[in-house]
Amino acid sequence: MQIFVKTLTGKTITLEVEPSDTIENVKAKIQDKEGIPPDQQRLIFAGKQLEDGRTLSDYNIQKDSTLHLVLR
């Protein structure tokens, strides 16, 4: 499925993911596309910070959802 990741600069990254993918996995995909190390990434969805060990389906993230990427 496709999800979107919006950065603070207003750029939107499109990712191909599975509901069973972990947040860690998603961060690795963002690193592949953007070169941002996962340890600098914070992903936010519906006002919640997403934890590495959980999956997209744990957070009820569905296709065409938009996550927000904050760098630390």
Rank of each mutant, 00 (worst) to 15 (best):
Met1Val: 08
Met1His: 06
Met1Lys: 02
Met1Trp: 10
Met1Thr: 09
Gln2Gly: 06
Gln2Glu: 11
Gln2Leu: 11
Gln2Asp: 11
Ile3Glu: 00
Ile3Gly: 00
Ile3Tyr: 01
Ile3Val: 09
Ile3Leu: 13
Phe4Ala: 05
Phe4Arg: 07
Phe4Trp: 07
Phe4Gln: 03
Lys6Asn: 15
Lys6Arg: 10
Thr7Tyr: 12
Leu8Asp: 09
Gly10Pro: 14
Lys11Asp: 10
Lys11Thr: 14
Lys11Gln: 04
Lys11Tyr: 11
Lys11Ser: 07
Ile13His: 03
Ile13Thr: 03
Ile13Pro: 00
Ile13Glu: 02
Thr14Gln: 05
Leu15Lys: 00
Leu15Tyr: 04
Leu15Pro: 00
Glu16Phe: 14
Val17Gln: 07
Val17Tyr: 14
Glu18Gln: 04
Glu18His: 12
Glu18Asp: 12
Pro19Gly: 12
Pro19Met: 08
Pro19Lys: 12
Asp21Lys: 04
Asp21Gln: 08
Ile23Lys: 01
Asn25Asp: 14
Asn25Ala: 14
Asn25Ile: 08
Val26Gly: 00
Val26Asn: 00
Val26Ala: 04
Lys27Asn: 02
Ala28Arg: 13
Lys29Trp: 10
Ile30Asn: 01
Ile30Leu: 08
Gln31Pro: 02
Gln31Val: 15
Gln31Ile: 03
Lys33Phe: 08
Lys33Trp: 05
Lys33Tyr: 04
Lys33Ile: 11
Lys33Val: 14
Glu34His: 06
Glu34Pro: 02
Gly35Thr: 09
Ile36Phe: 15
Ile36Tyr: 06
Pro37Glu: 10
Pro37Met: 10
Pro38Ser: 11
Pro38Leu: 15
Pro38Lys: 11
Asp39Met: 05
Asp39His: 04
Asp39Asn: 10
Asp39Gly: 15
Gln40Tyr: 13
Gln40Pro: 03
Gln41Ile: 07
Arg42Glu: 12
Arg42Thr: 08
Arg42Asn: 11
Arg42Gly: 11
Leu43Lys: 00
Phe45Ile: 09
Phe45Gln: 03
Phe45Glu: 02
Ala46Met: 03
Gly47His: 11
Lys48Trp: 10
Lys48Met: 05
Gln49Phe: 03
Gln49Asn: 06
Leu50Met: 08
Leu50Tyr: 01
Glu51Gly: 08
Glu51Val: 15
Glu51Tyr: 02
Asp52Ile: 07
Asp52Gln: 11
Gly53Asp: 09
Arg54Thr: 10
Arg54Ser: 09
Thr55Gly: 04
Thr55Val: 08
Thr55Ile: 10
Leu56His: 00
Ser57Asn: 11
Asp58Tyr: 06
Tyr59Lys: 01
Asn60Ile: 07
Ile61Glu: 00
Ile61Trp: 01
Ile61Met: 10
Ile61Gln: 01
Ile61Asn: 00
Ile61Tyr: 01
Gln62Val: 13
Gln62Arg: 09
Gln62Tyr: 09
Gln62Asn: 13
Lys63Leu: 13
Asp64Met: 10
Asp64Ala: 04
Asp64Lys: 06
Asp64Val: 02
Asp64His: 09
Ser65Met: 06
Ser65Thr: 07
Leu67Glu: 01
Leu67His: 01
His68Leu: 02
Leu69Gln: 02
Val70His: 03
Val70Gln: 02
Leu71Pro: 03
Leu71His: 11
Arg72Ile: 12
